[in-house]
Amino acid sequence: MDGSELTEERKVTKLKRKFRQMTGPLGVFFEGFVKNPVMVGSIIPSSRYTIRRMLEPVDWANCKLFVEYGPGVGTFCQTVLDHLPRDGEYIVIDTNPLFIDYLNRTIHDSRFHAVLGSAEHVEQIVRRHGHEKADYVLSGLPFSTLPEGVAPAIAAATYRVVRKGGAFLTYQFSTVARDFTALHFSRVDTGFEWINIPPCVLAWGWKDTD
């Protein structure tokens, strides 16, 4: 790389930094979407109505480990941390280094762990953090556009990692995530949130206690 190319790269990096500073988390989210729209799935983070409805069924008093796939810029993060017990832990998993870097820079809570990786490997990630099972797993991943074989692998791994009585919580703009959940979880509750851009299908797959 010659001097002119290096100067140009520095200018681009500086412009990106200024854009993020001006737009805050929305800018980071938009940049992440532009870089990998297949994995992000939406150009706008979830609404507060979606957040509230998705987390309503969670038994926070008995939640020791909460896991989230595709946290983006942390739309759900503060709400989860506000409800999570002091001795609980929260693991978020994302394949986008831009989002993981942003979360590590902006969330300072000893219970919070941002992991760069794939949700397919949730079992290994959970064990690496000293747990065998998760109480709840939340996913906003776009199951309908994931590479072939990835969605079923994530659904199967999630079923294995969720404890009995726990749940897999999904929100997506189609029924695909709910349908994959139903392949493993015997009880799936479904909802729909209109006040979101775009409106989305909500699903809670519960693992039998037997």
Rank of each mutant, 00 (worst) to 15 (best):
5 E>G: 11
8 E>F: 09
8 E>N: 11
12 V>R: 14
14 K>H: 09
15 L>Q: 10
24 G>N: 08
26 L>C: 03
27 G>S: 02
27 G>M: 01
31 E>I: 12
32 G>H: 01
32 G>A: 12
33 F>C: 08
36 N>V: 04
37 P>H: 12
37 P>I: 10
40 V>H: 06
43 I>Y: 05
43 I>W: 02
43 I>H: 02
46 S>C: 11
47 S>G: 05
47 S>V: 04
47 S>N: 11
48 R>Y: 01
49 Y>Q: 05
51 I>V: 15
57 P>D: 06
59 D>Q: 09
71 P>H: 12
71 P>L: 07
73 V>S: 09
78 Q>T: 08
82 D>P: 04
83 H>W: 05
83 H>E: 13
84 L>F: 06
87 D>M: 09
88 G>Q: 11
94 D>R: 11
97 P>Q: 05
98 L>C: 04
99 F>I: 11
101 D>V: 00
102 Y>G: 02
112 F>R: 03
117 G>N: 06
120 E>T: 14
122 V>N: 03
124 Q>S: 14
125 I>P: 09
126 V>Y: 13
129 H>I: 11
131 H>Q: 03
135 D>F: 06
135 D>Y: 02
140 G>D: 05
143 F>I: 08
147 P>S: 10
147 P>M: 10
148 E>K: 14
150 V>A: 01
153 A>T: 15
155 A>D: 03
157 A>P: 01
158 T>P: 01
159 Y>H: 15
161 V>C: 14
161 V>D: 11
163 R>P: 04
164 K>Q: 15
165 G>V: 10
168 F>S: 04
169 L>W: 02
172 Q>L: 03
172 Q>W: 07
173 F>G: 07
174 S>V: 07
175 T>L: 08
179 D>T: 06
182 A>V: 00
186 S>V: 09
188 V>N: 14
189 D>Y: 12
189 D>I: 08
193 E>N: 10
193 E>P: 07
194 W>N: 10
195 I>L: 12
196 N>T: 07
198 P>Q: 07
198 P>K: 04
199 P>T: 01
206 W>N: 08
208 D>F: 00
210 D>P: 08
